[in-house]
């Protein structure tokens, strides 16, 4: 424990600003991944354990596209759309076969997919660490906030994920398609009896959830070292986020993801050995006090 270091960081604005920006980056990336996981679970009732692998694939797609074109916009689109497409194919050909089956079957199928994706990455990109580096477009001087400096790319990342999160929330709450998707989460036979192709909608929702993981991977690529297997820790943290925030709640995922981000960023200074412990303790506390999560619905009926 080093609470003195934590206190001194909080009292110097340079350190506080740096840590807040770190917290926001961790939190917003986690939010992207967790909201996709939560959307898929909320509507389809399946847990996509391969979600972390999709994040990894998004990062590698972005890396490869950037190597080929040197354009960050192309890299971003490659990560996002490539993984969205993989998600649709994965749902159609694999996941849809285990709907309504034991959750163990879903786990098994997804675990197989994780192993395959990890190996494919090793075969195609090689087992060694990869660095994408800061894209040309963001080679700007860092921005100053109250005495602290934040790289331009970090600011972009935070704002971009926030915009995507707001867009997702608006799409689900306000558009007709979003209203149909929420109805699908509650009563699929009724939705299909109203003339809606639920099979296609399931694939679409899985695709959008996967797209979010791909976006997170693409956004993370310039700031992380890429390795096969990099999806595992973010998958576990996403589970913590969905448990704390409530499965199926976008706003809950945002709050919980920021909570984890701040715990990680400031914990690293104040109590580096207990960061993971505190995250799990918070999850346990939520499970005890409100099992459906901070903003999760109580299970129907």
């Amino acid at each position: 424990m080093n609470l003195e270091a934590l206190a001194s960081c909080l009292s110097t604005s340079a350190c506080a600003v740096t840590q807040v920006s770190t917290a926001l980056i961790i939190g917003m990336l986690l939010f992207m991944v967790a909201s996709g996981l939560s959307l898929i679970f909320g509507v389809l009732g399946v847990i996509n354990f391969a979600h972390g692998a999709f994040y990894m694939v998004g990062a590698y797609f972005a890396y490869a596209a950037y190597q080929a074109t040197e354009s960050f916009a192309v890299a971003f689109l490659a990560g996002a759309l490539g993984v969205g497409l993989i998600g649709i194919l994965f749902e159609r050909f694999i996941m849809s076969r285990v709907y309504g089956k034991d959750v163990l079957m879903q786990l098994l199928v997804c675990y197989a997919a994780i192993l395959i994706f990890d190996d494919l990455v090793k075969i195609i990109a090689g087992p060694e660490y990869k660095m994408m580096g800061m894209p040309e477009a963001f080679a700007l001087p860092p921005l100053e906030f109250g005495g602290g400096f934040v790289p331009a790319y970090y600011v972009f990342m935070i704002l971009a994920s926030l915009a995507i999160g707001i867009g997702l929330w608006l799409a689900i709450e306000k558009t007709r398609l979003g209203k149909i998707v929420r109805a699908l989460a509650i009563n699929p036979p009724m939705v299909s009896a109203l003339g809606i192709n639920t099979t296609m909608l399931y694939a679409g929702v899985f695709g959008v959830g996967s797209l979010l993981a791909g976006i997170a991977g693409a956004l993370a690529a310039p700031t992380r070292t890429l390795t096969p297997g990099m999806g595992l820790s973010i998958l576990i943290e996403s589970f913590i986020v969905t448990v704390i925030g409530g499965m199926g709640s976008i706003v809950g995922a945002l709050i919980a993801a920021l909570l984890i981000g701040f715990t990680r960023a400031f914990g690293a200074i104040g109590f580096p050995l207990f960061v993971d412990g505190l995250m799990f303790a918070m999850m346990a506390l939520v499970l005890i006090l409100k099992p459906s999560g901070l903003l999760g619905r109580e299970p129907a009926r």
Partner: peptide, 30 residues
């Protein structure tokens, strides 16, 4: 079922399966 609905058959089930967390307006929109 969705093709049958689009062909012109409207089904109102027996236990009033409204979407309980949608507003009245949103139920109609769906």
């Amino acid at each position: 079922p969705y093709r049958i609905a689009r062909a012109g058959i409207g089904y109102v089930p027996e236990d009033r399966q409204v979407f309980p967390e949608h507003t009245v307006d949103d139920n109609l929109i769906v």
